[in-house]
């Protein structure tokens, strides 16, 4: 599966609005609240056709586009 960071941004924009441009400190910087994180996870799962296990859901893993990228790669590997 091919994932690029631009696609992750696209999903973030579905959740946060079309001009959302942050790529780090998403959680520590207060961009996403806990409800938005849940929404983001559901949208990422739909978009990339993956399943993100509950154990991986933590503020660190979703704090930046880079770390989200890692999560998606890992999840895609698991589901494959």
């Amino acid at each position: 599966m091919k994932t690029n960071k631009e696609e992750i941004r696209k999903v973030l924009q579905i959740v946060k609005g079309k001009d959302f441009s942050e790529d780090h400190d998403l959680i520590s910087g207060g961009c996403l609240d806990s409800f938005e994180l849940l929404m983001l996870i559901q949208k990422l799962e739909d978009y990339f056709q993956i399943c993100i296990p509950l154990e991986w859901i933590s503020p660190e893993e979703f704090n930046s586009i880079d770390s989200i990228y890692e999560v998606i790669q890992k999840a895609a590997g698991q589901n494959a």
Binding site: I27, S34, I57, S58
Partner: peptide
């Protein structure tokens, strides 16, 4: 607060 981002924990 962080725990609400980490349901399992």
């Amino acid at each position: 607060k962080e725990l609400f981002f980490s349901p399992k924990h």
